[in-house]
């Protein structure tokens, strides 16, 4: 067992160095290769555990930058930490997106951590099946890496309890926290109270609001000097799942960090605990508040 652990450590620490030695620079293709290994490792875990759900297949991605990929990686790491908690293991620390321009090397470091966590899980579960290391394929873009991480994230859904209102609510609190920091810099006063919701909201309604929010963020980014606007994905709201909503909130968090980097805000948003007993309507109301506050920001920035 110690030998196996030793080999993993060698792989985790020496593989990145070996890749860097190639031409001295980590590219998205290197990260892509690591994500292929992540997918294979999750496949081994799923097979050993007997997970037979059919994971969603993500749409082809475009316009993603390393910061978006980093955000997706954190989502994956959070799911791994949930799976570890469920299996009685020490959960991985998740952390935040670093407040600087994210390079492929940053993402590579994160995916290496993910890989190491997965291999550690295998070791603890005494799963000895080895994967065939992925081959290096050049000319990969951040969008390709994002797509792979998204697939990995969907595959992990079979190993963890379903994404629940509390998870999404916590992510929305992160968005609010990021927005408060941005609003202070932009001198905008935000609404603090969510609107009262009549009737009953469903996942589809929350998904719609999250998509509105992404459009609004993109609109805000267009108005900020030197800020390339996010390309809003063609999210189809048909048969929307809780993991899709979770994904949308993670996209919003990544965009908030991008805006903070652009505005040179170096304050972290801080951690938030996952709350208890959150209702669907409360999640909807909070997402609606995000949209309303983004509209306020857009109006203020437009006037300046």
């Amino acid at each position: 067992m110690k030998i196996v652990k030793f080999i993993y450590i060698i792989l985790i620490f020496l593989l990145p160095m070996a890749i860097m030695a190639d031409d001295g620079k980590i590219t998205s293709s290197h990260v892509y290769q690591a994500t292929e290994n992540i997918i294979s490792e999750i496949e081994v875990l799923r097979e050993a555990i007997g997970v037979d759900d059919e994971p969603n297949e993500p749409e082809a991605q475009r316009g993603k930058s390393p910061i978006h990929v980093y955000g997706k990686g954190l989502e994956l790491l959070e799911k791994i930490s949930k799976a570890q908690r469920k299996l009685g293991m020490t959960p991985a620390d998740v952390g935040e997106i670093p407040l600087r321009d994210i390079e492929p090397s940053d993402v590579f470091e994160l995916v290496s951590t993910i890989l190491s966590q997965l291999r550690n899980m295998k070791e603890q579960l005494v799963i000895s099946d080895k994967i065939e290391e992925a081959k290096f394929v050049g000319a990969k873009m951040p969008s390709d890496v994002y797509e792979n991480l998204w697939l990995a994230s969907y595959m992990l859904d079979g190993l963890i309890p379903p994404i629940n209102p509390e998870d999404v609510y916590r992510n929305i609190q992160y968005i609010h926290a990021e927005m408060r920091l941005i609003a202070t810099k932009l001198d905008v006063s935000l609404d603090l109270e969510p609107p009262e919701i009549k009737g009953r909201k469903r996942l589809k309604n929350i998904g719609q609001q999250a998509l509105f929010a992404l459009y609004k963020v993109s609109e805000l980014e267009k108005r900020l000097p030197g800020m390339p606007a996010a390309s809003v994905p063609e999210v189809i709201l048909v048969r929307i799942r809780s993991s899709d909503i979770y994904d949308l909130t993670n996209m919003l968090i990544a965009e908030m960090v991008r805006i903070k980097v652009n505005l040179k805000i170096d304050l972290p948003r801080g951690d938030q605990p996952i709350p208890n007993d959150v209702k669907t309507n409360e999640v909807f109301a909070q997402m609606h508040l995000v949209v309303k506050n983004l509209e306020k920001m857009i109006k203020t920035v437009a006037k300046k």
Binding site: I49, G50, K86, V126, D277
Partner: peptide, 25 residues
């Protein structure tokens, strides 16, 4: 056999935690 027992064990943990989550209190 080892795989079967492992799958069974994790399956039980998984179904327990999912039903607890779904039904809360």
């Amino acid at each position: 056999m080892k795989k079967f027992i492992l799958g069974l064990l994790i399956g039980i943990i998984s179904s327990l935690s999912q039903s607890v989550l779904a039904n809360k209190n």
